[in-house]
Design a binder for these strands. Structure first.
Lengths: 187, 187
DNA sequence: TTCATTTTTTGATATAGATCAAAAATTAGT
DNA sequence: ACTAATTTTTGATCTATATCAAAAAATGAA
């Protein structure tokens, strides 16, 4: 089985490491609506979206569903705390489109991190990129208006409205669906 | 020179790796008010706070100073994007108390990541812990009221009000100083 | 100790965005 | 294509928190 092409680009891995990765990544196709993991279960995989779109969401204390993050093509995702600490995941992960997903088991992840220096470095860089995005998001959400956050999202994900529901996007931005609807209409 | 004790605890490093780290970490003492890095400059170090307190802050578009994060004892910090990408830092880092700080140069970091597999794994875990905290913060700030965020902060940093100014804490929480003052007074 | 500066609190008012309710539009199943 | 279910929009309020202004308290320097 061959690796998704974008992983190669990013990691710039020597071919030996590439083989190590290929051996443990499993490719699957899932329909829209499939859950990659659920709240309350331990999430035992790291996923890589080759094609499609996923969102991680959780139920807030007041009973509302909140989208934590979207993952489009060529993104890694997992329930970090659950995966590494073997705890119950606080969140769900749902595919919003028919998708092609690669997955990597915890035990294999441990193994390749321990056996392969290049892949440990790669894991570090992947996590670093995530931390960077999270930091930018935090800087944005603190003192930007709902409209400014909407504009920023449109720059990064211009086609998100064709791919996700308004309510998903609104809770991702930290606003209500009604407010997002009005912003989008320009009011 | 010996390493700060908490680094040993966290990383669980073999002694050989520990020596590699010791050789490149530099220990410094700085007074309250000292800037570890400035906006507009490339941040060329990773810092580790052994004693004291630091905050990273930046100037928002409307001219206000916003605290991005606090770092108390036993925390690593840097301007991530600046450090790894050699770009100008968007933020300042200021010591809020007289502090003992260890620092590690970019070139040394690259070297130990490349030469030492254990340290690459350690770097991954450190970055993972950061991503976890950032994720929790985002989940909190999106749909919690100012008061709920204040309560959460008090759980994690019960003595923060003795160590940082109200205005710093307020912008960290994403609220104004006046609102934080009223919340704290219980009104 | 006193005076100046900085920080925090308090008060009055304004507003962005929430909430509640219902209509319009879109999507999906038969 | 038709009907039901879901999603989005619109309208009318309400409220948490911002803003502006000034007083009180704390800190620091001479």
């Amino acid at each position: 089985m061959s690796l998704p092409s974008k992983i190669k680009d990013i990691s710039n891995l020597p071919s030996q490491s590439e083989e190590a990765l290929s051996a443990v990544f499993q490719r699957d196709e899932y329909p829209k609506g499939h859950l990659l993991f659920r709240q309350g279960e331990v999430c035992r995989h790291i996923f890589y979206i080759e094609k499609g779109l996923a969102r991680i969401y959780y139920n807030s204390s007041n009973g509302k569903e909140i989208t934590a993050w979207f993952f489009a093509e060529n993104s890694f995702l997992t329930a970090h705390d659950s995966f590494y600490q073997r705890k119950a995941s606080p969140a769900y992960c749902e595919l919003l489109e028919d998708s092609v997903v690669f997955s990597l088991k915890y035990t294999d992840m441990e193994k390749i991190l321990n056996e392969n220096h290049e892949l440990a470095k790669f894991a570090f860089h992947t996590m670093f990129e995530l931390a960077k995005k999270l930091t930018e998001f935090i800087n944005g959400i603190k003192f930007q208006s709902a409209e400014e956050r909407y504009n920023a999202l449109m720059l990064n994900y211009p086609n998100i409205f064709q791919r996700a529901k308004l309510g998903h996007i609104a809770s991702f931005l930290g606003i209500t669906q009604e407010t997002l609807s009005r912003i989008r209409a320009g009011r």
